[in-house]
Write a protein that binds this DNA or RNA. Sequence first.
DNA 1: TAAATATGCAACAACATAGTTGCATGTCGT
DNA 2: ACGACATGCAACTATGTTGTTGCATATTTA
Lengths: 122, 122
Amino acid sequence: MSPPANARSSKALLKGPALRKSAPIFAALGDETRLRLVAVLCAGSALSIAQLTDGTDITRQAVTKHLQVLADAGLVRDVKVGRERLWEFESSRLDEARRSLDIIAQQWDAALGRLQLALERS
Amino acid sequence: MSPPANARSSKALLKGPALRKSAPIFAALGDETRLRLVAVLCAGSALSIAQLTDGTDITRQAVTKHLQVLADAGLVRDVKVGRERLWEFESSRLDEARRSLDIIAQQWDAALGRLQLALERS
DNA sequence: TAAATATGCAACAACATAGTTGCATGTCGT
DNA sequence: ACGACATGCAACTATGTTGTTGCATATTTA
């Protein structure tokens, strides 16, 4: 059979912590409200909870919880300034998630390449 | 203030369906078991439920449910072959998710660039 | 100091998710 | 036809998620 040649690399892909560590990041991004918060914050400026709540149909407390989820995933960070709590985007974890998707896409492209090669041989 | 120059583009980023449509994809990827299934299937070969269950500590039915979640997100597809049901990776939705992360990262880089520029001017 | 602002904390309801078990159905090989 | 194999369906439990309300606390500002 042909698969043994790449069986080890695909197993390594799974055992390596890269993919497993990405699951919580994807889970954090897997909510429309949180994805919107990330999109707002990645524009650069640190914003308060009240500012992030404005223009939303949910309560300030709900936004706070979403921000906490994002913070647990390492996607945002908070800085206390006076009576405010400003939230800012943190890019490192998102980069990890990007790399994970790139690895999967790359693996898939390689599989398509092998299929193409096999077809040409027939 | 400096933000108005890019305020419209960041709003367009949010209103565009690209990001909102990605949330369900991230939600589907936000589980260790499902991420593993995707990683296995992106290696190329279509696998049966029994095969995908082997080497796991959960039941076949649990795997079936996870596959259904992935299918709802458009990340995998099933093909019935005899008494088996083979599952294969589907790359288009994953590419959408990749583009969404790229957009966010790009937005962030632009913000850093503006910050750098502002610092140099001082 | 007092009012207004910004946030924190806790309890609650509603719903979704992850996983199980038990049994039924369909398909292959003998 | 019959046993073995692969899967489907439904019910059920346990737990997590999302969002709410009510009240407490800290910080400005007048």
